[in-house]
Amino acid sequence: MIDAQLKKDLIAYSKTIGIDKIGFAAADPFVTLKDRLIKQQELGYQSGFEEPDIEKRTNPPLLLPEAKSIVSIALAYPSKLKNAPKSKRGDRRGIFCRASWGEDYHHILRRKLHLLEEFIKGKVPDARCASMVDTGELSDRAVAERAGIGWSGKNCAVITPEWGSYVYLGEMITTIPLEADQPLEDQCGTCNKCVDACPTGALVQGGQLDSSKCIAYLTQTKGFLPDRYRDKIGNRLYGCDTCQTVCPENKGINADHHPEMEPDPEVVKPKLEPLLTISNKQFKAKFGSIAGSWRGKKPIQRNAIIALAHFRETEALPTLYQLLEQDPRPVIRGTAAWAIGKIGTDDAAEKLKEAQITEEDADVLNEMEKGLMFLENQST
């Protein structure tokens, strides 16, 4: 029997704990999503960060026996950086995407979901619940779409009428039957701005993403970045916002009513060169509280090196030479070699050739050759 009063109470309570939008969906299997995920897998479009078991991703009762409903929540996050420091020669800066501003959203949403669970159990003591955010088995986007939070945009984000796509999503499966909300109609229409603007062509078509090409994914990988994407990264240290910033539904929207989500400009738009020599302890102290730190400092440092090459930052060459000669990590040494060649000065070739003599890693030697080739091309 559907508990209409509990749904009303949950909606009212959600507002008191800072949830911007709440929706309700049946815990039926996600049949259409399953077909789409199988196709994505066949095409090799998955990132590898997802739950590999498609059955778990699409069948809520496998995660919570006797599941009847799913509660979907959305929290709006800021899109504008106040007092943003300037990036200038000799003092270049990188940028973290908006979803990594402020406190790690996983923690924020889990706290909200925990409060909802406690509220439900206070009303229905024998109720069972299972909550998840982003890294859980279910697709946050598919749940939110079914629960009427927003529609699934061509940029592969849920777009809400109130907050655009600048929302964090989480969900809770429960054994309580709650009346489902109506999904919203797709309102993207003929607009194709996000697909056209994607720097790497990762948006194959509206609503279909090849994750292996997506800058948001690429910035989180730990190995050498494929050559064809290095110039596309620009000064991005973590994530990419292009498909959101060009979306007309996001125009003029800036949710700044959650203090814990407010970004520290020096954290989310940090100086690049100091990142190259930052210790693990220093990295954790400065960046540990944001979502973009989850893969550790190496991907961020690699991306910072690429950003310095993007800016042709000659002032950073002494530090890049230091990495080339002393850093124990092949990815950092090799990327530094590539960047040195891209930046290119009179002594760059000599430094690369000196380092070649003692270098034993094949991948690093390959990057050194690329760097030398850049320099040779510049001189001809």
Rank of each mutant, 00 (worst) to 15 (best):
C188T: 04
V331N: 08
G18R: 04
V246Y: 12
W338N: 03
C129M: 11
L169N: 06
I343M: 10
Q356M: 15
N366A: 14
T174F: 08
G296P: 03
E262D: 12
Q187Y: 11
P328S: 12
I300H: 09
L115P: 02
I343E: 04
A130R: 15
I215V: 01
L109F: 09
K123N: 14
E313A: 15
I332K: 08
G48F: 08
K80D: 13
K284F: 13
F224D: 02
S72G: 15
C191L: 09
A309Y: 11
C214T: 04
L276D: 10
A216L: 08
I290G: 09
K34E: 12
G48R: 04
G23E: 01
R228K: 13
G288C: 10
P263Q: 06
K284C: 05
P125K: 03
D186P: 01
K34I: 06
G344N: 05
P60C: 07
G234E: 04
L10N: 01
G206E: 05
I19K: 06
T319P: 11
E249D: 15
A27R: 13
A130I: 01
P274W: 10
E360C: 00
T175L: 03
P60S: 12
L109R: 09
L323C: 06
P265G: 13
T380P: 09
G344V: 00
P263F: 04
E315A: 15
A157F: 15
K8M: 10
I215Y: 07
P29L: 06
T319L: 09
P65L: 07
S165W: 11
P161M: 10
G148Y: 09
A147K: 11
L317N: 09
V331H: 01
G102P: 05
L184G: 04
T314M: 07
A362F: 13
P183Q: 10
A304P: 06
D104Y: 08
Y77H: 05
I305W: 11
D104P: 08
Q326V: 07
P85A: 05
S139T: 04
K7L: 07
I70K: 01
L33E: 06
Q244H: 09
R57L: 08
W338G: 05
K88T: 15
K8T: 11
V124I: 15
I108Q: 13
K370H: 09
S131E: 11
R141N: 11
A197Q: 00
L320Q: 12
G44E: 00
K7E: 06
V195D: 02
